[in-house]
């Protein structure tokens, strides 16, 4: 295996990782601050992609499409927070799971009702399409490189938001002691709506960015949601830093595992069996990673002590 292939796969792993981070950040914030398990987070990812596809289709502008994705997902997030999610904070996790699962069904069928069952068209803008040559002669798609940069910039922005702003202080205080910050005069329900909308907007942005290189279709959010849950369990529930490290770990494990395991089995098996055994094992790898992390640190890498 050549070094170039390996480096390209590391970049792919990184790209998958930062996009997972956009999903996982919202999920972990909502869980950390409100204690809510939100299964409908994948639907917000889908709403972002559909909003982007609709706006890109009618205006032809990718930037407008991204803004529409942010706005639509944030609006949908704020709306379900006010109408439904707000009633679930005091309930146990099973009720939350049931209610947010119902939201998945409502969003999926609602989207099908509006946009139909066939996948929509959303493509990379021409100024970001095609490959670029990196130092060392590596050909890498410019769009994926852009995704890595956007993801890292958002991670930095989120870090600054949480450590350096008033809203960040309230979020951290909310994670630690909800009653106390309410007693100090912070409008807790407004805070919750804002946090939920930020998480939703990030998911919607991820949906639009990913939708351009994948297919925009009903149900596109759920596979990503499962990975995002793996990420926040590995990173430690409630920790944004953990979500970032966890996403990149999962991204790299998934991509490099898919490359290295079949190559390993090819040493002593024929090509076909190596391909099928290697890829079967590779798809389990992130769950093995999750199990291993939980054995060593039951609350995740950066989770609060139980």
């Amino acid at each position: 295996m050549s070094l170039i292939l390996f480096i390209e796969q590391v970049l792919n792993g990184l790209q998958l990782g930062v996009m997972l981070f956009l999903m996982a950040a919202g999920l972990t914030l909502v869980f950390g601050v409100m204690g809510l398990i939100n299964l409908a987070h994948g639907s917000l990812f889908m709403i972002g992609a559909f909003a982007a596809a609709a706006v890109a289709g009618s205006t032809g502008s990718f930037l407008l499409a991204l803004m529409a994705a942010l706005a639509a997902a944030a609006a949908a997030g704020a709306l379900i927070e006010v109408l439904i999610i707000r009633r679930l904070y005091q309930r146990d996790h099973l009720d939350q799971v049931l209610a947010t699962f119902a939201l998945i069904l409502i969003f999926s069928e609602g989207t099908r009702w509006v946009f139909g069952s066939f996948p929509l068209y959303l493509n990379i803008p021409t100024y970001l399409s095609g490959p670029v040559t990196l130092p060392g002669g590596i050909q890498y798609p410019l769009y994926r490189l852009t995704l890595i940069i956007i993801g890292l910039v958002i991670a930095l922005g989120l870090h600054l938001l949480i450590t350096r702003t008033r809203l960040g202080i309230q979020i951290r205080a909310g994670e630690n002691d909800r009653e106390m910050i309410a007693a100090l005069g912070v409008d807790i329900s407004k805070l919750y709506t804002i946090v939920f909308a930020i998480g939703a907007a990030l998911a919607g942005l991820a949906g639009a960015l990913i939708g351009a290189i994948q297919s925009v279709q009903v149900g596109m959010g759920e596979p990503v949601l499962i990975l995002a849950f793996v990420v926040i369990v590995i990173g430690g529930i409630g920790s944004v830093k953990g979500a970032l490290i966890g996403s990149i770990l999962v991204g790299l494990t998934d991509t490099l595992g898919g490359l290295l395991l079949p190559a390993l089995f090819r040493q002593f098996l024929d090509v076909s069996s190596a391909a099928s055994i290697g890829s079967a094992l590779a798809s389990m790898l992130i769950y093995i990673l999750m199990a291993a992390v939980l054995v060593v640190r039951p609350t995740g890498l950066f989770g609060a002590k139980a």
Binding site: L16, V224, G258
Partner: peptide, 8 residues
């Protein structure tokens, strides 16, 4: 949904 690794 992501085939970057396969394409590489």
């Amino acid at each position: 949904t992501d085939y970057a690794s396969e394409i590489a």
